[in-house]
Computed example of a mutant assay.
Amino acid sequence: MCDCDWYSRFEGKIVGAIHEFVIAKEWQGKGIGKKLLMTCLDFLEKCSDTIELWVGEKNFGAMKLYEKFGFVPVGKKGIWVRMVRRRQNL
């Protein structure tokens, strides 16, 4: 889900957010995640200069994908890593 009205207590403002981004195991590695992420980013960039998401600390494949699209890890809470993409960093 892509959300343009997410209040980030970490950023102290409304940001774009990606929630529950999941690709079924049998469909991973086929470019579907990349295509869906690009669609989310196209949508979210129209409403915010900052986009955040949380990913499991051991989900290295997802983190690698997010990093390819300009997300950087900026914090951690429990097993979750917070990643942010800021327009000025692209």
Rank of each mutant, 00 (worst) to 15 (best):
F21V: 06
C47E: 08
E52S: 06
K34D: 14
A17L: 00
I23P: 08
M38F: 02
W27N: 14
E67H: 04
V72Y: 07
V84R: 05
W6D: 02
Y66S: 05
D42V: 05
K46S: 12
R86E: 14
E11T: 05
F43R: 11
A24F: 11
F43V: 04
K13E: 14
Y66R: 03
K46M: 12
G61V: 14
V22L: 14
I79Y: 11
F69N: 08
G61N: 13
L37I: 10
G16R: 03
V84Y: 01
K64V: 00
K25T: 14
D5V: 00
M38T: 10
I79A: 11
W27V: 00
V81H: 07
E57C: 13
K30F: 08
L37P: 06
K58D: 15
D49Y: 07
K35R: 13
G75N: 08
L90F: 09
L36V: 12
F69S: 09
G16M: 07
Q88L: 10
K35C: 09
F71E: 07
L90V: 09
G33R: 09
V81M: 13
I79H: 10
E52N: 02
D5K: 04
R9V: 10
C47N: 07
V22I: 15
V74Y: 05
K13V: 04
K46A: 15
Q88V: 11
E26N: 15
E52G: 08
G70M: 09
K35D: 12
F43Q: 10
L36T: 03
